[in-house]
Design a protein around this nucleic acid. Structure first.
Lengths: 221, 221
DNA sequence: TTTTGTAATAATGAATTCAATATTACATGA
DNA sequence: TCATGTAATATTGAATTCATTATTACAAAA
């Protein structure tokens, strides 16, 4: 296994939590796969104690599942979980939009506008990886703009789960174009400081993404 | 220390997470207090390994804070955290109300109505502990009625944080009466299956509670 | 007295060990 | 061949041990 390099940092388990979570989100550890303590210990150059501490935390976050006496498995991304996750994150983004709209400085809004332009460029170049990155950066900026630690923490967890779904279905061209259009509206509302409307648009934006993904999943079956 | 009895159950750390979290929520472990591993190990009759695993999980949930080489402390309930938490939980309850309204059976609604009556009785008897319990039971029933695991999990964490605030301020008589009135409206809307409105009322209900608590906190200072 | 330095003590983070459980390999009999 | 039982092996959960860091106690000097 060559998943990562050894470690420094304050405490091992904190570093491990972040690293292993990332392996899960980035699909380096596949859903349903068992998490082999021994191999990960060797890969990271740590003993089982901090690794197991990390696994408990990841289990409470929902990225792995612990089976008594049978170790840990990477959590599956189920249709049901997505179905539960999207409505919740939609409300969180709505709230974030409302708060960010009144709290962001003009300069910060201009920076988000820059990201938006970069995202549109990625769309026009049909560069999916770059689009994903820019898109994520915009949403993150809006979440951070809400200036609410609790909101950030809970959003981070939910966003990570949804992120994993990108390995299940491909963004359709149609949805892609619609998403861009929705972002244009968001930017306009953000510049107009229309908090209520921005929240509404962001909520719908997520709900539309939700519908698109669910349709694609159905089509696969 | 006589905080708890020894343990059985599948894995020790899971049990410990629940037990220690409960000690924090019930204010048996005070905010800012250091969590003495040794004593807790003795109190629960376990070694440091599962206890420390539990502390990492509780830290990720925000109930304790880990300081490298200096152990764990019970997290404080800060004004700032409450200020961040309430808006989020308000949206979650709003969503829960909308979903529960269309998903609960008539029988389940009748059961919630029973709880409501019990809560009103507790109010009339000015029995705060009983009121808290019944109130919590109603909100929990509505959350569960949404039938959304993610929503339940995230709500549970946020609700626990807010619950801790009850040791900081006392429910005022005025707020208490208003809360009862809001619950009356909720029940009516639930019976009328008016999802949108119920969601709205639940959101406002939490927001009003928020304002009340903040005012009381300000008055203390 | 108060401050500062230092030794002793205690606690923490992480590795290791140990007992219990699960998994695998393999032999035996249908 | 295919089950089925059993021994060997590996993995897991938890206790223990060990090295490091923090805390405390206390002495010497200002």
């Amino acid at each position: 296994m060559t998943l990562a390099r050894t470690i420094k940092r304050p405490t091992l388990h904190q570093e491990l939590v972040d690293r292993i979570r990332d392996l899960v989100i980035e699909d380096r550890l596949k859903p349903g796969e068992k998490v082999p303590e021994k191999e990960l210990c060797e890969a990271f150059g740590v003993s089982r104690t901090p690794l197991r501490e990390a696994l408990k935390v990841l289990a409470s976050e929902g990225f792995v599942e612990l089976q008594t006496n049978r170790g840990a498995r990477v959590a599956e991304v189920t249709r049901e979980e997505l179905q539960d996750t999207f409505p919740v994150i939609a409300r969180l983004e709505q709230l974030a939009g409302e708060l960010a709209c009144v709290q962001l400085s003009d300069a910060e809004i201009a920076r988000i506008d820059d990201k938006h332009k970069a995202m549109v460029a990625a769309f026009e170049a049909r560069d999916r990886p770059r689009y994903f990155k820019e898109n994520q950066s915009i949403h993150q900026a809006l979440i951070n703009g809400a200036n609410n630690k609790i909101l950030q923490d809970h959003h981070k967890l939910l966003a990570a789960k949804i992120k994993r779904a990108r390995f299940m279905v491909n963004l359709s061209d149609e949805r892609w174009a619609t998403a861009i259009a929705e972002h244009e509206i968001m930017i306009a509302q953000l510049r107009a400081r229309d908090a209520e409307q921005l929240g509404q648009t962001m909520k719908h934006h997520i709900e539309n993404k939700f519908r698109s993904i669910m349709k694609l999943l159905d089509d696969q079956a």
